[in-house]
């Protein structure tokens, strides 16, 4: 699998949280290449299945398909658009972004604000807040009203690009990188023997509170749930110990959200196969699908692996493509290692 190609394909659809029901189809087509059957549930989770039906072991892999975005909240008399946030947006990245309003047709626009020349010096030192900004489509107000309604979603224009040494940059890599990792894992499984029934889930609405994971893990109620998400990669302005290095393999989480036996198994497989990995201590809420999965129904043994990603929730999120492959291979080897005894042991403390 050409990771970059699949990633580009995954990025070809804009999926702000809440748009999954309408837009899941593009993912379904990609999933069909790697899964035996694919379905879409009521909230728009895409659920692919691979492996023996009704096997003794059911594994759920979850990576969210949704991305953060904006939403039209008001259109003023001159056709300028005011917006609300979908998910955790850093308002400092907004000035001068190019956006697309998904109205009756796709309307391009730019995020504008009062020019710096017109601001007092102390005003210029302050970050712009969302109420200081608006979207300018360049269209007359009547035309804006024809094309755009309150509640239409807005996405950032995509400009993915390849950097040096296998680095890749773009928006929505959180968490299409996770989806790509799961697909890579499914392909790797073809080379291995495994007895589990694997559910690959591209979850909906993670960015607004892992809502898709809540319902899909209820529905599937797997024996093991693994979330594949992103974590903070090393950046020039952040202490080294707070981040994980790009290109050095997945960060395997441990902490209360993680079943200790799953952490140990993932770690020992990585060591046995010389797969690079990093340890990611999570003292409390992980803020990922794993947090929701773990307390579904009577509880699900849960794990989390993360792809190091720089500049999360900006339009220039940056990762190393190798990490996707390494993580996908680790997951495949993990699944291949599972047997009923191990799974039963997960309920024995």
């Amino acid at each position: 699998m050409d990771v970059k190609e699949v990633l580009m394909e995954l990025l070809s659809t804009d999926i702000p949280s809440g748009c999954e029901v309408d837009r899941a189809q593009s993912l379904v087509q990609i999933f069909q290449r790697y899964c035996e059957d694919v379905s879409v549930d009521k909230l728009g989770n895409v659920i692919g299945r691979k492996g023996a039906k009704n096997a003794e072991i059911k594994v759920m892999l979850a990576a969210h398909m949704d991305e953060i975005g904006l939403m039209v909240k008001q259109i003023d008399d001159r056709g300028f658009i005011r917006f609300s946030y979908i998910g955790g947006i850093d308002h400092r990245i907004l000035p001068a972004q190019e956006v697309i309003i998904h109205g009756r047709e796709k309307v391009p626009g730019v995020i504008g604000s009062k020019p710096p020349h017109m601001q007092e010096p102390e005003e210029r030192n302050k970050a712009l807040k969302s109420e200081d900004m608006f979207i300018d489509t360049g269209l007359p107000a009547e035309r804006v009203r024809e094309l755009v309604r309150i509640g239409d979603v807005i996405t950032f224009k995509r400009k993915p690009c390849e950097l040096l040494n296998g680095c890749f940059s773009g928006n929505a890599l959180d968490d299409r990188a996770g989806v790509a990792t799961i697909l890579y894992c499914l392909e790797e499984l073809d080379k291995l023997q495994f007895s589990a029934e694997v559910y690959a889930v591209a979850t909906a609405q993670e960015e607004v509170g892992f809502r898709g994971a809540i319902v899909s893990s209820y529905h599937l109620y797997p024996d093991i749930g693994i979330a594949v998400d992103v974590c903070h990669g090393n950046m020039a302005d952040v202490a080294e110990e707070e981040t994980h290095k790009l290109g050095k393999g997945p960060a395997i989480a441990l902490g209360p959200n993680i079943h200790p036996k799953l952490f140990n198994r993932l770690k020992s497989i990585a060591e046995d196969y010389n797969i690079p990995y990093q340890v990611n201590p999570e003292p409390s809420a992980t803020g990922t699908d794993a947090w929701a999965m773990q307390i579904t129904r009577q509880g699900i043994p849960t794990s989390l692996i993360s792809i190091p990603l720089r500049y999360m929730h900006t339009t220039v999120e940056t990762l190393n493509l190798d990490d996707i492959k390494i993580s996908g291979r680790l997951l495949a080897l993990f699944i291949s290692s599972l047997d009923r005894g191990f799974v039963e042991g997960l309920r024995c403390y």
């Binding site: 009577q298 699900i300 043994p301």
Partner: peptide, 25 residues
């Protein structure tokens, strides 16, 4: 997330008093 020691003490205490099991969490 690391309640093992407490759990083991309690298991020992209630062993003769009640049926018990652990779950996924």
């Amino acid at each position: 997330g690391a309640e093992d020691e407490v759990r083991n003490i309690l298991k020992r205490e209630i062993e003769s008093l009640a049926q018990f099991r652990t779950d996924a969490l």
